[in-house]
């Protein structure tokens, strides 16, 4: 009698434990990251660390190790992925150095039965999943905002990112499509700021003396504060500068807002997108049906949400959102 009760209790406990622990508790996930040399990537790695550590502690997965290559080279990252195949990971989450150059290594991983989820820097190998950002839509949203803020239109200065990177082309295409649809705006100059404040500051300082009055500066993130500095140094009135969610940009915006009611908006990708990719990989390992192409929402900050976001952003860091399993399920369901 007692033995049967004990057995029953054990069975009940075991079933509860099984319900709480998904089928992925024995699975190992690796992050293959190509670059760590800026604040966005650092925040991305920290978010990964925080969320996956909790997931491992909760027994959702067995391991979630992050690896970053030293030189931001596709060949180096391909070798890294081949090592991960040999180490027996069940899924590889990858932020790729190139959309095409890793395809060979990615295919090898797929053939070995490994789930590959690419995000941010996505890959075009069909066997991999892609958690992509609608960069073009992000660029266009800047012009949509300016349409409301500047009904009369005006001259725009465009700060682009790193020449030759597809993200730069996509955001710029969105911006220019928006400008083409709204003839009240005129793009009078474009410089490359390499997504870095000091490079943007230098480039803007160089072109600014030759430009007519600028109504707004459209940007790609990481360059807004540098642009503001350059306008101030040249003694020109500050235009509407679209920000990119960096803490120094938000802080500058807050100071201007308090001093003279300055209005703008800020848009970028939350570095925590790495955690969304993690949960997507976990869902696929769990046997869920997941479409190959998913889109991440971008993180937008407006006049009324500025204070809350600024308070949540670490000094000198990037505004961030970490995603949960439920968020991933929602994104997957929304795409189906």
């Amino acid at each position: 009698m007692t033995t049967r009760k004990l057995l029953l209790a054990t069975a009940a406990l075991a079933s509860v434990a099984c319900a709480a622990h998904a089928d992925t508790s024995g699975k190992k996930i690796a992050l293959s990251n190509n670059y760590a040399g800026n604040s966005w990537r650092q925040a991305m790695l920290q978010s990964w660390d925080k969320v996956t550590k909790q997931a491992v502690a909760d027994g959702v997965v067995a391991a979630a190790d992050a690896f970053t290559t030293a030189e931001n080279q596709a060949t180096e990252q391909a070798a890294q992925i081949q090592n991960m195949i040999l180490q027996g990971y069940d899924a590889i989450v990858v932020n790729a150095a190139s959309p095409t150059a890793l395809n060979g290594a990615i295919k090898e991983a797929c053939d070995a039965g490994i789930v590959v989820v690419s995000f941010d820097g996505i890959v075009d190998e069909p066997c991999a999943w892609r958690v992509a950002v609608d960069f073009k839509g992000m660029g266009k949203s800047e012009i949509e905002y300016l349409k409301g803020a500047l009904p009369d239109g005006g001259n725009l200065l465009e700060i682009r990112g790193l020449a030759g990177v597809f993200v730069d082309d996509a955001i710029s295409a969105g911006i220019n499509e928006g400008v083409a649809e709204n003839p009240q705006f005129k793009n009078v100059g474009a410089v490359h700021g390499d997504w870095a404040q000091d490079v943007a500051q230098k480039a803007v300082a160089g072109i600014l003396p030759s430009l007519p009055e600028i109504a707004a500066v459209v940007t790609q993130g990481g360059d807004g504060y540098g642009a503001a500095q350059a306008f101030a140094a040249a003694g020109r009135p500050t235009p509407i500068i679209i920000m990119g969610n960096r803490q120094d940009e938000l802080k500058w915006w807050k100071e201007q807002k308090d001093a003279n009611g300055y209005k703008t908006m800020s848009v970028s990708i939350a570095p925590g997108v790495s955690t969304l990719a993690f949960w997507v990989a976990q869902q696929i390992l769990d046997g869920k049906e997941v479409p190959k192409d998913l889109t991440v929402p971008f993180l937008r900050i407006d006049q009324d949400t500025l204070e809350a976001n600024l308070a949540n952003t670490p000094e000198g860091g990037v505004a961030n959102v970490e995603y949960s399993q439920e968020d991933a399920i929602k994104v997957i369901e929304g795409t189906k």
């Binding site: 040399g37 800026n38 604040s39 650092q42 390499d194 870095a196 404040q197 000091d198 490079v199 500051q201 504060y225 540098g226 500095q229 120094d248 000198g316």
Partner: peptide, 16 residues
């Protein structure tokens, strides 16, 4: 000097 000039040091500030 560059980090004083541009409002802070960044990890990629030396690249160019």
């Amino acid at each position: 000097l560059l980090s004083c000039f541009s409002g802070g040091a960044a990890l990629n500030m030396g690249n160019e």
